[in-house]
Design a protein around this nucleic acid. Structure first.
Length: 582
RNA sequence: GGAGGCGUGGUCUAGCGGUUUAGGACGUCGGCCUGUCACGCCGAAGAUCGCGGGUUCGAAUCCCGUCGCCCCCGCCA
């Protein structure tokens, strides 16, 4: 029996319970121990009148001792039932006690859920993982992975493993390199994703593939980014975009229903990248609250306000958001808004308070006629009591800043309903973006993504106008999956590589094996890869994916428990024919 | 690479230029307690206020540097 099982139906039976001492309540003449394992908690009782010889031993028990008790399940006395725990109607009167192991005073208290410095939690992760919050998180994660396998199996997907020792790729994130002993001076890379292998599996005829795959990227860490993370990697042949989106939204629906009994409506809303950028200022809109970006360019075309005219004259826009109920903001609060915008890269922000008494308090009142002000209010859909935050400039630039302001104010004004799970798809991403530093084009998604058929003719002439058949799944303002319809024609793949400066020779050298497969009957295919860590973290209500990963790295990339990464013996380097500089 | 925040007994924190002999809670240790369940009551131990330097009559408190951690931008096909 586990510590979570005991019920009234077991009264009268003798059981053995193994677990950790969660809490001890020593009443002097009576000792209660809450005995804990991952299934739950059971109160066990030591009574000196019933078992005097055990009592002395029981007095030595301390937090987190590992014990085994044998005893009789009995009903608790009248009035001593505990409705807070599942086993609260009964207790175990101990007849035998074995202390299997003692425990030093733990640096983290397991029994309470008080906050503890994360470094300490990571250093003593084995204790942190005993706490109910982390136990629940890892159980939730397991259930999500299990539901994923069940669903995809039912849908006819095959789970196929791909190598962890792969080739480095020229595009994308920095690779983690693994030196080869058998080929001195050469390196494997850990996979950034199983991308190429899953595409080749399509060519091989495994038309529905998935893998709960570990991926590695050597980039800076964040609350939602670890150097190794887990994707539900999926790929399908003979599919259109909507087939892929359909399967993955049903996967999410199934997982949330099965694991948490939460109903997620499908189909998810599909929003174009352009619409998302315009309405929310980013490509992962948080639709749990309004306060959307509104374009008022058309309504302020004929004002005397220089900043508007300059922006509009140079092809820019005037846009803003409505901060509900913020008309009473003090000078200091308004300065904070400006400061926030400046930190985000803006020159400034223009505010206009719609006072309750009808006053339009803003520098704009000097330059706009009463009719123009009225038109502006209508365009924003603002009420008295609201505050307008307005910016003028290049449309995408100001939208990005307004988008950040929107998120910040959404938090500050408490507009976000934490109980919501708002899924949507963002589709029709641009194929390329311009890299200012390297003065060249790069792919927005990855170079195996197919352009939308109707834009193919622009690949060489106006590449920045080409839309890709790429899509992201967004949950509560987080990118939780990304995918695309892939290229399966050697000629098209070559054109896409050329646009980002990968020559035919380099393409042949780095991706020749993939290009070759395209000449041996590659079917049209596409896929998507939901991020298990992020989805689990959001489902668990956690702020960071570290809280749904058993042994994560800190933001410096260190494992505080094992000390990794560490220096290695020079012998190890010698075998690999490596030298460390400095 | 850049911006910001935090660092006080084992843990979480209060104090933010003098009222501090650095306060509280949890934990730990000792005593009392036979129906507790965040048990209760009494008592005790436990802190070079991350580290180094400076300003000052006086620094946990202000300044500079440094280390550690967190968050954000860049980066993350």
């Amino acid at each position: 029996m586990t510590c979570g099982d005991a019920r009234a139906e077991h009264i009268g039976s003798t059981v053995v319970l193994n677990g950790w001492v969660h809490r001890r309540r020593d009443l002097g003449g009576l000792i209660f121990i809450d005995l804990r394992d991952r299934y739950g908690m059971t109160q066990v009782v030591f009574n000196p009148q019933e078992k005097p010889e055990l009592f002395a031993q029981a007095e030595k028990l301390r937090s987190e001792f590992v014990i085994s008790v044998t005893g009789l399940v009995r009903e608790r006395p009248e009035g001593a039932h505990n409705a807070n725990i599942a086993t609260g109607d009964v207790e175990v009167a101990v007849n035998e006690l074995e202390i299997l192991n003692t425990c030093k005073t733990p640096p983290i208290q397991v029994a309470d859920n008080s906050s503890v410095d994360e470094s300490l939690r990571l250093k003593f992760r084995f204790l942190d993982l005993r706490r109910s919050r982390m136990q629940e998180n890892l159980i939730l994660r397991h259930k999500m992975a299990k539901a994923t396998r069940d669903f995809l199996d039912k849908e006819g997907f095959l789970e196929i493993e791909t190598p962890m020792l792969v080739s480095a790729t020229p595009e994308g994130a920095r690779d983690f390199l693994v030196p080869s002993r058998l080929s001195p001076g050469k390196f494997y890379a850990l996979p950034q994703s199983p991308q190429i292998f899953k595409q080749i599996l399509m060519v091989s005829g495994f038309d529905k593939y998935f893998q709960i795959a570990r991926c590695f990227r050597d980039e800076d860490l964040r609350a939602d980014r670890q150097p190794e993370f887990t994707q539900i990697d999926m790929e399908m042949s003979f599919v259109s975009r909507d087939d892929v989106l359909g399967v993955s939204e049903r996967l999410m629906q199934y997982v949330f229903k099965t694991v948490m009994n939460i109903d997620i409506p499908v189909p998810f809303h599909r929003m174009s990248w352009e619409e998302s950028m315009n309405r929310f200022g980013n490509d992962k809109p948080d639709t749990r609250f309004g306060m959307e970006i509104i374009d008022v360019t058309e309504h302020v075309k004929n004002t005397e306000f220089q900043a508007f005219n300059d922006a509009i004259g140079s092809g820019g826009a005037v846009r803003g958001i409505v901060l509900p109920g913020c008309a009473g903001y003090s000078r200091k609060q308004l300065d904070e808004l400006t400061e926030f915008a400046k930190k985000a890269g803006a020159k400034g922000i223009l505010s206009a308070a719609l006072k309750e008494d009808g006053e339009f308090k803003s520098v704009l009142s000097k330059y706009l006629s009463p009719e123009q002000i009225a038109e502006l209010k209508t365009a924003f859909g603002a009420k008295d009591g609201d505050l307008l935050a307005i910016m003028a400039g290049e449309a995408m630039f100001i939208s990005a800043i307004l988008g950040k302001l929107r998120l910040e104010m959404g938090k500050r004004l408490n507009l976000i309903d934490k109980g919501k799970f708002n899924f949507l798809y963002v589709v029709d991403f641009p194929m390329y973006k311009y890299n200012e530093e390297e003065k060249r084009l790069e792919t927005e998604h990855h170079p195996f993504t197919s352009p939308k058929p109707e834009d193919m003719h622009l690949l060489e002439t106006e590449p920045l106008k080409v839309k890709a058949d790429a899509y992201d799944m967004v949950l509560n303002g987080n990118e939780v999956a990304s995918g695309s319809i892939r290229i399966h024609s050697r000629d098209l793949q070559k054109r896409v590589f050329n646009a980002i400066g990968i020559s035919d020779e380099e393409a042949e050298e780095k991706f020749g094996f993939l290009l070759n497969t395209f000449e041996y009957g590659a079917p049209p295919h596409g896929g998507i890869a939901p991020g298990l860590d992020r989805i689990a973290a959001i489902a668990a209500g956690e702020e960071t994916i570290r809280d749904v990963i058993a042994f994560p790295k800190n933001t410096g990339g260190d494992c505080l428990m094992t000390g990794a990464p560490i220096a290695v013996e020079s012998d190890q380097l010698k075998i690999l024919k490596l030298k460390v500089e400095g």
